[in-house]
Computed example of a mutant assay.
Amino acid sequence: MTENKREPGRKASFGATMKAVFWSFLGIRKRSDYEKDSASLNPVHVIIAGLIGVMLFIGVLVALVKLAVS
């Protein structure tokens, strides 16, 4: 058994959730990682991480547009 496997029922940290959401935004996920995440991620953390990711994405886009226009 490998050390990377989580115990059943063990929840991932918020940092691990942010990492999973970041890779999902890019569309780069292995099927095995997706299956591990779906078993261990807290849905509330996923929603919060997704909202943070969207706000960061919009902020970067707005900054790029302001830079391009000026």
Rank of each mutant, 00 (worst) to 15 (best):
F14N: 10
L67P: 08
D33L: 04
V60C: 07
V62R: 14
A20P: 08
A68E: 04
I47E: 12
W23H: 09
A12M: 07
K19T: 12
S24D: 05
E7S: 09
I52D: 03
V60L: 02
G53F: 08
G9N: 07
I48F: 02
E3Q: 13
A12I: 00
L26I: 10
V69N: 15
V46C: 08
R31F: 05
I52E: 04
L61G: 13
V21D: 05
A39S: 09
P43I: 06
L56C: 13
L61H: 14
M55E: 11
L51S: 11
L56T: 10
A12K: 07
S70C: 06
P8C: 10
R29W: 07
S24M: 11
V54S: 07
N4K: 14
M18A: 12
R10H: 14
K11E: 13
S70M: 10
F57L: 02
R10M: 13
S40I: 03
R29G: 04
T2A: 12
V21L: 08
S13D: 07
L41R: 01
N42H: 10
A49K: 09
I48P: 01
L61E: 14
P8H: 11
G53I: 09
K66H: 03
V54P: 01
R6A: 02
V46N: 10
P8Q: 13
K5G: 03
K66D: 02
D37F: 00
I58A: 05
N42E: 03
M1G: 15
V46S: 08
G53H: 08
E7Y: 13
N42V: 10
S70E: 11
D33F: 02
G53Q: 14
F25T: 09
G9V: 06
S13G: 05
L67G: 11
F25N: 13
G50K: 13
S38G: 07
I47G: 11
L64A: 06
R29Q: 08
T2N: 10
A12Y: 04
N4P: 04
V65S: 13
V69Q: 10
F57Y: 02
L56P: 02
Y34R: 02
L64T: 00
S40C: 12
S24V: 04
L56I: 14
M1A: 15
V69W: 06
S40Y: 02
S32T: 00
V54F: 12
S13I: 05
K19G: 06
V21C: 09
L56W: 05
L41Y: 04
F22P: 14
V65A: 15
W23A: 09
G53C: 08
P43K: 07
R29H: 06
E3D: 14
L64Y: 01
D37A: 05
D37T: 01
S40W: 00
F25C: 10
W23S: 06
I28F: 00
A63N: 04
W23E: 09
L61A: 15
Y34L: 03
G15I: 06
I52C: 06
K11M: 12
K11A: 14
F57G: 01
A39W: 04
L67F: 09
V60E: 13
V60Y: 15
V21A: 10
N42F: 13
K5D: 01
G9D: 11
F14S: 14
F25W: 15
K5T: 02
L41P: 00
G59S: 15
V46Q: 12
V65K: 09
L56V: 11
R10T: 14
G59H: 13
A12C: 04
A49V: 03
L51F: 06
M1D: 14
L56K: 08
G50M: 15
